[in-house]
Amino acid sequence: MSTDGTDGVDDLELPADLAALIGGLPMEIEPDRDLWEGVEAAVAPVPLPLRAARRSWLPLALAAATLIGALAAWSVRPVAPGDVREETTQAAVRWEDDVRATTDELEAVLERRRGELDPQALAVIERALADIDAAIADVHRALAADPGNDALAAALADVWQRKVHLLRNAAELAEAG
């Protein structure tokens, strides 16, 4: 038995006056300012410097180099038992076909417009894509050997997202001329 006088508080009904006030609370309150800009800045792993890109391929090359570095870091990351996540492997890989359809479309755009890209930028992009594809293949092999490893499944989804970001930026850069 509790000594704090709260026994049975679960069984107590919410006082009517309080219940009425709570019922009148709005379920949605818009923030005073638009927070999207901050969210977007935090989640976009590769900036979209279209204006700058028209002048130079450097921003994208830097972004791709960063991506390669991130992949290198990921590839040596130990997948310890403690890193295994609660979510299921199926949840992490179920989107793969959808994502592959997206990357196929973007690769087709890039292929059509590759002549409009700076050759050095194109080389950086192609190296990054090769690294990503190699990483995807590696994770597939690892998952085949350890299909219940949720950390690997999450890593697979992460690498696919990185591929989409790189391709989307490359395609936009090519279309921007």
Partner: peptide, 27 residues
Amino acid sequence: AAAVGGDLRAFEGLYRDHVGRVHALAL
């Protein structure tokens, strides 16, 4: 699904729909 595939505009749509609810809770 589009956002999982890296579509930030799709995710912005989700943000616009849900930000009021999330902000009310946080506030």
